[in-house]
Design a protein around this nucleic acid. Structure first.
Lengths: 112, 112
DNA sequence: CAGGATCCGCAAAGATACTG
DNA sequence: CAGTATCTTTGCGGATCCTG
């Protein structure tokens, strides 16, 4: 006789996702990587004029430790580091595109 | 009352979306409203055991001023206020569902 | 019941300087 | 080029008390 199945939803799945992509710049970083594929550190920096090195580094490190992006280091001089979506990160692709489309729609319907 | 801090990514639709739904509880609030339709203030409070009245109020006010939710006040005693998704908020429905599904998948594939 | 008014704490972000 | 290291600041959210 089987044991009763236990419910295991200690946290809400939405909360789970938000905790991983909720950083200030995380979704835009993920989106840039989704669009462009691979980006170097300073390429990402230029995408966000107001971000500081420190903040960008931290957001990237958190995304990496959550397994959403990959960090490829080339041991050469000058240094070269490439960021891209991991497989898990790529599974966010539909969400990222929908967020972009929603924003486009919002802008179109709410002219500044 | 201070508004949530916004990021600056020149003409990036993702930025618009993130600035509107980027609050700590905003996406989960929107998701609850998407699922349940209409919720009163204290009903929402009970959904998030750790949220304070002030924080919930602020998140709701910001969502309202961004046009994502509607606030229906019944002039009676005791007071009664109902929150629900506006038409604009309802257009987030696919995103909210995908975020939920992504979280479910992630939890399923990464057993704690 | 649904908040408003204050005061507060702390992580997250910014500024700046330095380096392998 | 791609970061560290420090220091400072801010802003998001929490705690508590009060009210129509």
């Amino acid at each position: 006789m089987d044991k009763q199945q236990t419910i295991e939803c200690p946290v809400c799945p939405v909360e789970y996702t938000v905790n991983m992509v909720g950083g200030k710049y995380k979704l835009v970083i993920l989106h840039k990587l989704a669009i462009h594929g691979v980006k170097r550190f300073n390429e990402l920096r230029r995408e966000f004029p107001n971000i500081t090195q420190r903040t960008l580094t931290r957001q990237l490190r958190e995304l990496e430790s959550d397994g959403l992006i990959s960090r490829q280091v080339y041991s050469e001089i000058p240094p070269k580091v490439e960021y891209s979506l991991s497989e898990t990160g790529k599974s966010l692709y539909p969400i990222l595109l929908q967020i972009e489309n929603w924003g486009l729609n919002y802008i179109a319907n709410n002219p500044k």
